[in-house]
Design a protein around this nucleic acid. Structure first.
Length: 340
DNA sequence: AATATAGGCAACCGCAATTAA
DNA sequence: CTTAATTGCGGTTGCCTATAT
């Protein structure tokens, strides 16, 4: 037996809202609020509509401070950046763009922005931009990975003492910050465009964020959504040219587009005291040789010792700038959450 | 001028998560 | 703890308008 319908489908109006209905709904909500009960609202407001329909109309069209019309380049950049990081989580993306609704952004992406990006990408890489699902990740040659990075599937995991991550959990499964409900980890694996020179996978494709230490492979674009432009994640990866990746230049938020491969420890300026510096990888790109894991281990060591240093008050959790560092920190269990 | 096609967007649907009883 | 109700989300649909034929 299915669930009971939320309203009497036969007696509710569907389709476009009339100006009269709009003003009824608007006036009612402005006067009494929603009362935390959308289902009961239409009857109280004298509307022959389903509660869900009222909610949608209010959220997407009637509520104050909604922005309509053209999206700015900055908004484009934020959308692209977040889409690359978290995929089609429109509500999260909308939360970063005041005045824009998830529906608005979704429509804009599907009808315009996606095409705009394709048009701007180099001919050879002109594919529909996608959030790369973990299971589409090209398998890493097993010989080049230490055992702890391997798993049986095409993806790979890092097993820590007390938990394991594949690096591919959906956000909902990533423990969220106790500081607030708005915590979201952007430590996700993704590329907006596949970077496929014949036979070569980019390091970013090989090494998705392993989440050991929650260091993230990614370009600057993937962590540039802070209002101050700083990076709140430990970003771990080559600063691949935006153009190389098929990213149009407007997505680049800084001048690092053509730097060598390097690892960012800590963010640029606001309270992350871990190391707060770039560490250059001596040569080549991360992921090209097994010895690169030594480099990775070095970085982990540095993060680790820094964490130990910071945890001076014995509390279970502490907050360090935009980074939340959780209890029982080991190089494997330190968690960095970006929150807004 | 009439018709076909494409683009844009508002709204709906169904499912999952959350909350209340 | 369990179940039902409600909310929130993302995918999809369908209508309206603009453009092409």
């Amino acid at each position: 037996m299915g669930r009971a319908p939320c309203c009497d489908k036969a007696n509710v109006k569907k389709g476009p809202w009339s100006p009269e209905e709009d003003s009824k709904l608007k006036e009612y909500i402005e006067k009494y609020g929603t009362g935390g009960n959308w289902i009961a609202l239409p009857q109280k407001a004298g509307l022959k509509r389903c509660g869900k329909s009222c909610r949608l109309r209010w959220l997407n069209y009637l509520r104050p401070n909604l922005k309509h019309g053209e999206f700015s380049d900055e908004e484009d950049r934020v959308i692209c950046s977040l889409f690359a990081s978290i995929g089609s989580r429109w509500s999260i993306i909308a939360a970063q763009l005041p005045g824009r609704t998830d529906n608005d952004i979704k429509n804009y992406w599907n009808t315009k922005l996606k095409k705009k990006l394709m048009a701007m990408a180099p001919e050879s890489q002109r594919k529909p931009p996608t959030f790369q699902s973990p299971h589409q990740t090209p398998p890493l040659p097993s010989h080049s990975l230490p055992s702890m990075y391997k798993d049986s599937g095409g993806s790979f995991s890092y097993y820590s003492q007390n938990r394991s991550f594949t690096g591919f959990e959906p956000l909902s499964q990533i423990p969220s910050s106790p500081l607030g409900t708005n915590s979201v980890s952007l430590a996700t694996n993704s590329l907006l465009f596949q970077n496929t020179q014949e036979g070569l996978f980019s390091p970013m494709q090989y090494y998705h964020p392993v989440k050991d230490n929650y260091m993230v492979f990614g370009s600057e674009a993937s962590c540039s959504s802070n209002s101050d432009g700083s990076c709140s994640l430990i970003s771990y990866g080559r600063e691949i040219k935006q153009e190389d990746m098929g990213f149009p230049s407007f997505m680049s938020s800084n001048g690092y587009g053509d730097q060598n491969q390097k690892v960012m420890l800590g963010n640029g300026n606001n309270g992350v005291e871990i190391l707060n510096q770039w560490v250059e990888k001596p040569n080549g790109n991360i992921g090209e040789t097994p010895s690169d894991y030594d480099f990775i281990e070095d970085v982990k060591q540095q993060v680790s010792s820094s964490c130990n240093h910071n945890d001076v008050n014995g509390s279970n959790n502490y907050n360090n700038g935009n980074l939340l560092i959780e209890e029982n920190k080991t190089p494997e269990t330190v968690m960095y959450h970006y929150y807004y």
